[in-house]
């Protein structure tokens, strides 16, 4: 099944590129709160791509079931960890760098 092989390679390669993009993101973004979003990439889509690609490699077996369990657990825990981190930083008094141009007007700018 060379076709499935190729698709799984595509998934794994995309995951690898997304991981590197997230790694660059935590150096490009200026403050802690915006870095949270860069880490969000590696936590969600990158992990999903890797695990789906590996699932395709293993086929229907106990290994793919365990990969699915890892997938589910990562997807339940990573938003919780990110939220806890952001909440702790805000309570700890770390000020975010906000965009001056829109700051304070956000409530008025309803979408059309």
């Amino acid at each position: 099944m060379i076709f499935i092989e190729l698709i799984s390679w595509l998934f794994i390669a995309t995951g690898a590129l997304l991981g590197i993009a997230g790694g660059i993101g935590i150096h490009r973004f200026p403050d802690f709160y915006s870095r949270l979003h860069a880490v969000g990439i590696t936590d969600t889509l990158c992990a999903a791509m890797f695990l789906i690609g590996l699932c395709l490699q293993t086929g229907v077996s106990i290994a793919s079931l365990k990969l699915l369990l890892i997938f589910i657990f990562l997807f339940f825990s990573s938003p919780t960890a990110t939220h806890a981190l952001a909440n702790a930083a805000l309570l700890g008094g770390l000020k975010p760098e906000l965009d001056e141009e829109y700051h304070g007007h956000c409530f008025d700018r309803r979408p059309d």
């Binding site: 709160y33 949270l36 969600t44 889509l45 952001a86």
Partner: peptide, 26 residues
């Protein structure tokens, strides 16, 4: 949790009436 999960928005605080969100872009 869904807000936190989508990159670009992170919920930083949650209470009965509001949720405080940090968004990457307008």
């Amino acid at each position: 949790n869904a807000i936190t999960m989508t990159p670009g928005t992170v919920s930083t605080n949650l209470d009965k009436k509001t949720v405080t969100v940090h968004a990457l872009s307008i």
